[in-house]
Every structure is written in structure tokens, then in C-alpha cells.
Design a protein around this nucleic acid. Structure first.
Lengths: 158, 158
DNA sequence: CTCCTTAATGAAAATCATTTTCAATAATAA
DNA sequence: TTATTATTGAAAATGATTTTCATTAAGGAG
């Protein structure tokens, strides 16, 4: 249940109201950071620091709470890349546009998003999901695929 | 670098010595628990409790330290299934025998190992890894694939 | 077998990300 | 404008994991 386009002013406000959430400056600031930041896989603390620049009154607790409801609404994805903290990514397109996986550099923790080969991957996943569902009577909702290794810079450094 | 067969007495001692680690009762107890326990995806605390039954002198800290070196040696795999604690699995076979992925029930946290469809998967992965390596100059060492959903019991309960 | 070096250990304290508590504040419906 | 109640910040709590440090015990040397 990813979220659609993030275009125009207040594109998110309808979604918020629809879910019974109030529109607040803190929530707008979090979304703005997620949309405008260079870094696309921010931790709660990084988001906090960024929001803090323009909204010093917003506390870390509110960042966590906002990220939680954004995640619940499908507007944000939450990932664990193995560095001991959660990282968040704006779901900025349609379902198909969003679908991508990650390459994680285990040395410098850099994350690379990729969409290539996603089609082949999707086909395999469909097949696997079907088989597993039947064999284990398991209803599959989501999947996680990540590749771990060394990025260009870190490989050369060694 | 998974570990080979776990057969015979002291199959692990040579590996330990080879890596410069000493043979201790605590380490043997952890390996025994991992080998003999019904539960195949134990947390550090669960392992601690199990070890504690026969070796009450062994502390939780030692469990963590032992699991870390076992993971470093490739004798144990460490996973995050999203329940806020690491879980450990004995690498009890050869590379190929070990290779499997997980189905995670998001309701009851049950973990199902599966090996089916691994062959198709391996082929896709080879292709993807090659493509990604070339495009992003990224050296891929490992990958993680997990499916999340509801197991038979939890689906029926709803 | 005994001694010696040093890795391994347990207990307690420290970390650190995240969550909870609670009283104060502010967004919305009436 | 007011009343209701979600949202908030600060501080405390939580919980998994790590670190510290003094003590113990493997395992090589003799």
C-alpha cells in the first residue's frame, strides 16, 4: 500500500485527514525533509537533526511518532540495513515505481537503490510466492531482498 | 564461508584451534544448544537460558561473545527477523546444503526455512549480481531474501 | 606435571536506539 | 469561541547489546 505522487502543496493533507490524523507543523517538516533531503535513507536521528534546523522546537520523540504513522499509512518505508538503527524512505511513487531493492556496502554503509533486473526478479518472486503459499499455507504480503558487499570506493581502498 | 558437517565428537575443536580460539565448556555448551535445540532460530537470551540449565555458571555476556566468534568463523549465521533481537542459526552443512531463506509470520513470529525454488533463485541471483556488479562496480558477497506474511494458524485466527 | 602467559569469563556498568509517561499545548469540530 | 481530544516535548524507562575490569583457567613451554 504505497503512496501516490507527492506533487502540489498539501498533497499529503488529504491522506492525513482521511486517516484521522491532524495536520501539524512537525509532520509537515518531517515530510519535507524526506522529500527534499539529498540522503534518501535517513535514520530517525538524521531526520531529527534536519528538521531541527528550521523547527528547533520539534523533538526526537515526535520524529519517531511521525515516522511510525507515516509507515502505517504506507507513505514511508522502514528498513534495517544492519547498522543498528532503522532507516526511512519516502514512498514517492506508485506501487510499481516504488519497487526497488538495495545494495548495502558493509564497509561504509552506503546504500544504492536499484531497479534493474526487477522484472526478472518479480517473475521469480511471483513463482516462489505461489509455491511457498501452497506448500506451507503461508500468505505472503511482502518480501525483502538485499545484497551486501563492497562499493567501488571501499573495494579499492583495501 | 559456512562450516562443514557437524559430526563426531569435537568436530568443532579443530576449527577453533585453527582460528586461535581456546576450547571452553561455555563454547561447547553454546554449540550443543544450537545443535540439539528444537528451536532453530534462537535469540541470545534463549540460548542463554538453555545453556543455563546445564551450565548455570555461564553468563549472558559469554553467550554474546561466543555467538560473535562463531559468526566470524562462519559456523553460525546471524539474522534479523524484525522482532528487535538477533537470532542465530547453526551453519550445519556445506555451502549448498546451508543455502535457504526464510518465511516470517508477522503475527506469531514463527520462522519457516525453505529450500524450494532455490535453484531458480540462484540463477536469477547470479544474473542480478553480475549485472549489478558491473553497473555499480559493487562486489556482492551475500544476499538476504525474506518473505513476510501470515502463517496458516495466524491467517485462520483472523 | 607445573608454571606462565594471556585469552576467556562474569558481574556490573555503560551504551544507544527506541518507547513510554505525563502534564502542557494546539488542531479541529461544534 | 469554545470544548474536545490528538499531539507534543521532556524526562524517565526499556531492552538488547557492548564495554570495563578484576578474576579465572586454557594450553604451550620447560
Amino acid at each position: 500500500m504505497p503512496y501516490g505522487k507527492c506533487q502540489g502543496h498539501g498533497w499529503w493533507q488529504g491522506k492525513f485527514r482521511g486517516c484521522g490524523y491532524r495536520i501539524t507543523a512537525a509532520r509537515e517538516a518531517v515530510l519535507n525533509t524526506l522529500m527534499l533531503s539529498e540522503e534518501k535513507h535517513m535514520s530517525a536521528e538524521e531526520i531529527y537533526l534536519s528538521v531541527h534546523e528550521n523547527n528547533p522546537a520539534v523533538g526526537l520523540t515526535t520524529i519517531y511518532r511521525t515516522l511510525e504513522i507515516l509507515n502505517d499509512m504506507g507513505m514511508v518505508f522502514k528498513f534495517d540495513f544492519g547498522d543498528g538503527r532503522a532507516r526511512y524512505e519516502l514512498a514517492s511513487g506508485t506501487d510499481d515505481e516504488n519497487h526497488h531493492h538495495h545494495l548495502v556496502c558493509t564497509a561504509c554503509k552506503k546504500i544504492i537503490d536499484y531497479k534493474e533486473f526487477i522484472d526478472d526478479e518479480l517473475e521469480l518472486l511471483r513463482k516462489t510466492e505461489k509455491g511457498l503459499s501452497e506448500k506451507y499455507n503461508f500468505t505472503i504480503n511482502t518480501h525483502l531482498i538485499q545484497f551486501y558487499g563492497l562499493c567501488e570506493d571501499c573495494r579499492d581502498t583495501r
